[in-house]
Write a protein that binds this DNA or RNA. Structure first.
Lengths: 191, 191
DNA sequence: CTACAATGTTATCAGTGCTAAGTTTGGAGG
DNA sequence: CCTCCAAACTTAGCACTGATAACATTGTAG
């Protein structure tokens, strides 16, 4: 029978995944902990055993998405041994992730707890991966440290800006082709 | 005395400006219509005479900011008669607006009602201004229509991506100088 | 001057975040 | 095997929110 067991066991994980699914369907602003709890078949106060407050829960969902985003990027970098292509491949991968998951862009980056610093070490994993990859590639090309900073910022801006575009609702173009063309057309050595 | 008059007269405008101020201080997610109403000295139901619902109110505030953003951009374009500079000046103006108003970027662009189309006419005023300005400049340079699209998208992506960066909390660099250097370093004819 | 539409009011509802206090449960140590 | 306790849940309830209904006030068109 469906008499709910007192102990749900994997409730924390279930809550996160249910929350993710909900955000996917209805967006973050419609989410309430009570609805998520109900969907999981537990009382409205149950989540508070696992999360300090709603914000803590949202952060957990965000981290879940961020991990999956990083998986994509790391896989892409690993697949790409060729230095001359890794940057544009990484850029396309970055953009396509949000094209395929339109609701994730706002959710990941409209939150204030995500900070990005330009010059130094960074606690934002995707940007840090981008920064290090670009740094290593550009260094091998014999480019000065200052210029590396400019180029990295410019490239990341393009990629991030394209992602913002690609997660908009009404894209009326063959986006994957466009993205590749645009990123490839930006010759980093010319920036 | 402070016995509030029944008719506040300019309540709609006052609500919007109070809302703007509030978002500036505490962010959108902390905003409630009741608090705004109280700050304006009216009852909690009063705003519903002017706005259909909370979303309608938020849209009005958003429009208010969008208008001020467009003012900046248009002033910039007007001041700049020189075709060779207008694009980079416009870019710097775009980015600096959000550098100077860090909370506005998320507020303007994380809302789903803002759409951006690439190829055709567009109901997003700043992007449309950017698209037309770039189109006119690039056309005079004798660039093909297809390339104009690519360049426009790439340039807007850089500018928009830089804006995302510039509205982040912990910028630890002289941003205005950086932005100018980066935008100027992107030679559009090379994209 | 009077009727009425616009613009306010109070009262009330359901939904939300969160906490307090009590209940169930699995499992570690006797 | 029992006992006890901390973790994981429950129900109850508070304060706040968005929204609506029913009523009050007011400026103004006719």
């Amino acid at each position: 029978m469906d008499n709910k067991p007192y102990h749900h066991k994997e409730l924390k994980k279930t809550l996160i995944e249910t929350g993710l699914e909900f955000i996917d369907k209805y967006g973050e602003e419609k989410l309430s902990l009570r609805k998520i709890a109900e969907k999981c078949g537990v009382s409205s106060a149950a989540p508070y055993a696992h999360f300090k407050d709603k914000d803590d829960f949202i952060n957990a969902v965000q981290q879940y998405i961020m991990d999956s985003f990083m998986d994509s990027l790391l896989t892409c970098v690993d697949k790409c041994s060729d230095d001359t292509q890794v940057l544009s491949e990484l850029g396309v991968c970055y953009v396509m992730f949000f094209y395929n998951n339109p609701l994730y862009f706002d959710f990941l980056f409209s939150r204030k707890n995500i900070h990005i610093r330009l010059s130094s070490e960074n606690d934002n994993p995707p940007f840090e991966l981008f920064r290090k990859t670009a740094g290593s590639v550009l260094e091998k090309m014999g480019i000065s440290e200052e210029k590396i900073r400019y180029k990295t910022i410019a490239m990341w801006s393009i990629v991030h800006g394209l992602s913002a575009l690609s997660s908009m609702p009404d894209i009326d173009v063959d986006w994957e082709t466009e993205v590749k063309a645009i990123i490839n057309s930006v010759d980093i050595s010319k920036i």
